[in-house]
Computed example of a mutant assay.
Amino acid sequence: MFHHQDSLEALNRHLPLKQKIVSAHRVIKDKFNFIARIAITLYDPESRIIKTYVDSSGCDQPLKHYETSLDKAGSLKAILDRERPRVVNNLVTFDNNEHEHTRRIGHQGYAASYTMPMFHSGSFFGFLFFNSYQPDVFDEKTLKDLDVFGHLISLIVINELSTLSVMDAAIKTTSDITHLRDPETGSHLDRMSRYSRLIAQSLADKYELNDEYIEHVFMFSPLHDIGKIAIPDTILLKPGPLDEKERAMMNTHTTIGRSMIDSIVANFKLDGIEQIAVLKNIAEFHHEAINGSGYPSGKKNSEIPLEARIVAVADVFDALTSCRPYKDAWSNDKAFDLLKRLAGEKLDSDCVNALIENKAEVEQIQSQFQEDIFG
């Protein structure tokens, strides 16, 4: 009675998303051995950016840590405009395409591809790619079977993102209450989260960061100050400098934030989320200093989790370059000069350099997410 082994049994277990995609790819290869790679990109509707997220590749990663504007990727935008998948049975015909992602795919040696747009409740959220080193493999019968697998993989991704969304919504609801009292604006969170992603992306090769980690840094960084909900208005909104007792109270927002996240994760049974530690570390350790003078634990150097070091630089830079009731906005160059002086003492040198070396991208973020009239 129990002789049959479920070929997709791995999907029943608590595994990282990448392992689930790899398991699905293994089953697909049993039927279509020419499928060399399955890849998923996510769409950020606010910036209209397409970002690599996860794939089933081993050494084949032509688009590792890659992002592009959907408006500049004409072939992908055409898929979305038509809400229809695209079949390219001979990528040689795309050799003269000027877009970088097409060139990278071609240089990897892929000869054919099938691209499906992914939707959840009618909303577009990314693309799913099937790549082959062999040309002319995607006939109608093959495509019908791949459609089934494609929607299965899409559901796996939706489930993963929905779990993250539940957690994100629970925490952001609390965070929104905080920011009704906190003078920091939504534009600040938009910018610093994208600075955080920019830094993580720049450090990806040195620290061997995968695209999932980079995306989670982006998703979780706006929640760094969630613990401020517990800080009294007399301290949080004080226009002048805090005294020693008030500063000590303000500093508790890091441990309070970590405790709140622990409670939310437990109450919503979200402890199975991969890389949940990234969120916890950002909330608790983003005020630690490289020389050990920070709080709450006085961690030094690499004792401070990388994600907290990344967010610290992004947060400080945006605070310096933003207008506040008590100060004018600094120029980028003036802010960069201070970051350089703080590097190696208060802030991580790699993270500081990663931000400064991407000045053009920083300016683009600032242009797109300008301070609102209440900023």
Rank of each mutant, 00 (worst) to 15 (best):
S202I: 03
A354Q: 11
I256Q: 12
I256E: 10
I199A: 10
L209E: 00
I290M: 14
P305H: 03
A24E: 10
I235D: 07
K72F: 08
L198V: 02
S297A: 14
Q108Y: 08
P305F: 03
I35C: 05
P241A: 09
N332D: 12
T185W: 04
Y295C: 07
G294K: 02
I49Y: 12
P222N: 04
A39Y: 01
D81A: 11
E303K: 02
T178A: 08
D60A: 15
N89D: 09
A289W: 09
T102R: 05
I50P: 02
F130E: 00
P325W: 12
Q201D: 13
T178C: 13
L338C: 02
S132L: 06
S121I: 07
N131T: 01
D315F: 00
L223T: 02
R324A: 06
G294E: 13
H107D: 13
T115N: 03
V88K: 01
H120T: 08
K245P: 03
I105N: 09
N90V: 00
L155K: 11
G272K: 12
S263N: 09
E215V: 00
D145W: 02
K77V: 00
S121C: 09
F124H: 05
I356K: 11
D372A: 07
V88R: 01
Y295T: 15
L143M: 12
D176C: 10
A289I: 00
N210I: 04
N97H: 08
S69M: 06
D182Y: 13
V362M: 07
H287T: 05
E208W: 12
L180K: 11
I365L: 07
L236S: 04
E371V: 02
F2K: 13
A39P: 03
M250H: 05
N131G: 00
G375M: 04
F2S: 15
I365N: 00
D6L: 09
I158D: 02
Q5T: 13
N159I: 06
L8S: 05
L15V: 06
K327F: 09
A354S: 13
D30Q: 14
D145N: 13
D168Q: 14
D333R: 06
A248R: 07
M116A: 06
C351H: 03
D95C: 06
Y195W: 09
Y207F: 15
D372S: 06
T255P: 01
G344D: 10
E67C: 08
S57L: 09
S293L: 07
F138L: 01
V316L: 11
R86I: 01
A277S: 14
H107R: 12
I199Q: 05
N301G: 06
A200E: 05
M167P: 02
R37D: 14
P85H: 09
A112P: 03
L306Y: 03
F138I: 04
G150I: 03
P222C: 04
N97I: 07
D348S: 07
K238P: 04
F34R: 03
L203W: 11
E160H: 11
